[in-house]
Design a binder for these strands. Sequence first.
RNA 1: GGGCGAUUAGCUCAGUUGGCUAGAGCGCCACUCUUACAAAGUGGAUGUCGGAGGUUCGAGUCCUCCAUCGCCCACCA
Length: 716
Amino acid sequence: MKMSEKFNKPYDPKQNEEKIYKQWESSGYFNPDNLPAFPDGTPREQSWSCIMPPPNANGSLHAGHALFVTLQDIFTRFERMRGKRALWLPGADHAGFETQVVYEKKLAKEKRSRFQMSREELYKEIWDFTQYNKQFMEGQIKHLGASCDWSREKFTLDDDIVQIVYDTFKKLSDDKLLYRGLRSINWCPKHQTGLSNLEVSYEERTEPFYYIQYGPFTIATARPETKFSDKYIVVHPDDDRYAKYKHGQTFDVPWINGTITATLIKDKAGNPEMGTGAMTITPWHSEIDFDIAKRHNLDYEQIIDERGKLLPVAGEFAGMSIKDARPKIVEKLKELGLLIKIDEKYEHSVPLCYKCKREIEPQLKEQWFIKMSPLANRAREAIEKKDVKFVTERHKRIALHWLENLEDWNISRQIAWGIPIPAKICQDCGEGMIDLNNDVKKCQKCGSKKLEKDPDTFDTWFSSGQWPFATLGYPDKNDYKEFYPTNLMETGHDILFFWVLRMIMLGLYRTNKVPFKTVYLHGLVRDAKGIKMSKSKGNVISPLEISDKFGTDALRMALVVGNTPGTDLNLDPNKVGAYRKFANKLWNVARFVIMQVAEIDNLPNLDEENQIYRNLQNFVDEVTDDIQNYRLHLASEKIYHYIWHTFADKILEESKPILQGDDKKAAAIQARLLFEMLKIQLKILHPFMPFITETIWQELPEKDSDFLMVAFWPKK
RNA sequence: GGGCGAUUAGCUCAGUUGGCUAGAGCGCCACUCUUACAAAGUGGAUGUCGGAGGUUCGAGUCCUCCAUCGCCCACCA
């Protein structure tokens, strides 16, 4: 036997990785349907599946993507080697709002704006943009070694996916879990769309709190600019200070733009602890106020427009932005003698658009809402019964808590980029009607024929929340029957609420089964110093650059070793460098062992009773147990340590005298031992460092499968 | 206002159900170009495991309190 000439030193990842990936791809083994049978000829029967969280098709991969690709690939390769029909299904997400925001930034750079374009033009442009990104992204995922089945790849805007999403929408309506309602929603004045509660972030601010004379009352507010037409004053029914006034009593109140008639409302929403215990309400721009108005059947009026400017009701202030108007209004209140005092140290949290950080301006809008509590209750039950298990106990607790008091979910978005909501809106009475086949011609409520298509699109999470069963072809495709429920959902803990829990709720709702049996949540990938990566800070580490420099295998190890589930990880290039060294170490170990074997003509059989060999088998069992229990951080470190400090440092060193001694038979036996041990080590390391292990495997003079990728996991 | 996590070598972090004479990588010191490997090897220094109590034969690991940092949740006019 002779060593291949390309078995050079040191190990060069670039020379091998791309080539190996192409070989894997053309082998067809990423597709579970093509996997070879067991050595004794029995076919693979047990299935295992994982759906890839579809990356947003709006940019290149970041370190977080590299982490999930690595983790999921490890599990997939492990299960495949254990003889399962392993399916890892890849996809891409149109990522509605997120993508539109990215695209709007691009437009802004080009001095363009979406408000100068038709919806159709915008949609078309973003479509081309995502198609380009999607392709680019797939190449990057391949670069990271992902052994996913590309033949089953899905996009959230594929026709069959959209059809399933529409069916769910209809079913929710039939089951009375969907309604169209006028409600206060989180409106972003910049992006011109409503947002779900999850898409609002809060910031603690200290702002002035104004005490204003309102007839016989003193009210307190942080937002005087909303108060123009306030004509209801609300106090708690049990507030003694106001016991002398009666519910429904009216007062003539000198107000900002003249005298108005105010009505007293006694409602439990009034908080005696807050300010003076008396407040006026602005139902159009506050959810609480709107709820009060509904309870008492009060009038409401829009004060601020969608762009955050004051409407004509503001009189002389009309057309001004809130920010500009506030000090001027305060000035006028002062002139009118209505301003009593200002508390400068009022601390409260201000709702902001999670993308642009502008203040959310609540607006009343007709939107589609999903009633969450029935869905949430089922999800809680499934989690409590452990139909869905969480690898990290604390995320389970967080999940259960979140599911306890879920508000209804606004799934309407006023953006072009997304799945259009299949509905018509009556222009006369405002009734919204589901219209899957474009055959609703007149209003089901008032009979009017003036119907318009609902211009809105779905919240992107409404469609991605159906991803597991939709990608597998619910309800009748073979993949659905075989692979659903999936085994593993691996994703970032930051989208536990956005995605994971929505999938559990919608999955249970649609299929009566949980969408996945186990949830593994990883943390955020930060930079070497533990600072969150961001483009503005300029500390973004590109996984592709790191991979080019150190090799994908090294990057993968750096992402896994010491990275406990759910905890944030600092990605330090030095750490990646350490695993490049390890790759080189393994390379040289393999060279040495193959060199020894190459000098022997007839290798004897392995002595399976050999103690060193048995120790390795025990070690394999331990590592197998770690992987099965999602302790990749331990498994990877142990394998690293075994290969370097047990096998290379001790076993190989102690073998040298035997190998080079006079007893040729003993040398041959020892060579066989080392060779078999090398193969086992390659196998158990393969899920973590697939490229180098496969490269070495293909240089072996004797192997038990054409590709290491489909070799069988060692066991006693 | 509620909840959660972290605090271990100079730095970044592991340490699964209590058994650790506490580990890894990087960094540091000394010596070695010994044909698997200088992207290496051999040897070495460095820690009252945030603080105070407690449970235990035994605690980095469990309990209580405290301190510092970080995160999440919550319709506080």
